[in-house]
Amino acid sequence: MRTHPTYREITINGLWKNNPGLVQLLGLCPLLGTSNSMVNALGLGLATTLVLACSNAAVALIRNAVSDAVRLPIFVMIIAALTTCIELLMRAYTYELYQILGIFIPLITTNCIILGRAEAFAAKHNVLQAGFDGLMMGVGFGLVLLALGTLRELFGTGMLLGNMQLLFGSMAADWQISVFPHYQGFLLAILPPGAFLVLGLLIALKNRIDEMVAARAPVPQDDQTPAPSRRVRVTGVIE
């Protein structure tokens, strides 16, 4: 009997079936608080993905050497150390973006997604599977962040890829695209209530897609109930 999930199952779970942002609804504070632009969403998404993948691999590496009494504190220490490394890197190379994201970078340490995956998956599987699970969960979370940032920036300002130089340097200074010229802006989209509205629409869209896929899926043979047979009574006269 197979007890370990395949890499395909891990990928589908992280990106779609068990997506942290759309299904588990974890990490909503940074998800909603930093998704008012693409660059903010992409920056936090990359930072969270790196911490999630590395912490999962580290937890899986020591899972047999740590007792249950100190397991959770050790997991938190690992996550905090990795978050500090990401924070120092952002200070060194993307300082302006680090200032914009503010407290949400240190708060990666307490993100429910990271500690939850460390406890639920990394502590029970090998290093490769745990690291890959962390990577897919992080990518799934980052894609939701990026979708929110894209939609909110588009409808809020009428532009895309604004201020990308904060993350990619001077080469990205000309990446900004004006999708709606002379657009007056829609303030609600870039305010916190807009984040809730857009996330709700994304969750509704995912649920609708799941319903359509389930409706088109073939019915297994075991679930097909044969139609009841009809008995036809024939009467006649034999001469």
Rank of each mutant, 00 (worst) to 15 (best):
L44Y: 12
G21A: 12
L32M: 13
C54R: 04
A47M: 13
A57Q: 00
V39M: 09
G45W: 01
M38W: 00
T48S: 14
G21L: 05
G43Y: 01
N36C: 06
C54F: 11
I62F: 11
A41I: 03
L61A: 10
T49M: 10
G27A: 04
G21W: 07
G43I: 06
L28S: 08
C54V: 10
I62T: 13
S37Y: 00
V59Y: 04
A57W: 04
G27D: 03
L42D: 07
S55H: 09
Q24P: 08
G21I: 00
V59T: 11
L31E: 02
L31K: 04
L44F: 12
S55C: 07
L46C: 14
C29A: 15
G27M: 07
G27P: 07
L42T: 15
A57M: 02
A41G: 07
L25P: 04
S55V: 03
N40Q: 15
V39T: 04
A47H: 11
G43E: 05
N40C: 14
A57T: 03
N40K: 07
S35D: 14
L32C: 01
L26I: 12
V59S: 00
L44Q: 02
L46Q: 08
L61Y: 11
L52W: 00
T48G: 13
G33W: 04
V59C: 10
S37I: 09
A47G: 13
S37A: 09
N36I: 06
T49V: 11
T34Q: 00
L22V: 04
L46D: 01
A41E: 00
L50C: 13
Q24R: 11
T49D: 04
G45R: 00
C54N: 05
A60D: 05
G45L: 05
I62Y: 11
V39P: 02
L26K: 05
L28K: 07
L26G: 09
G21N: 01
A60V: 09
T48Q: 12
A53R: 03
L44K: 00
L25V: 11
L50K: 06
A47I: 09
S35F: 02
L22S: 00
V59R: 06
C54H: 02
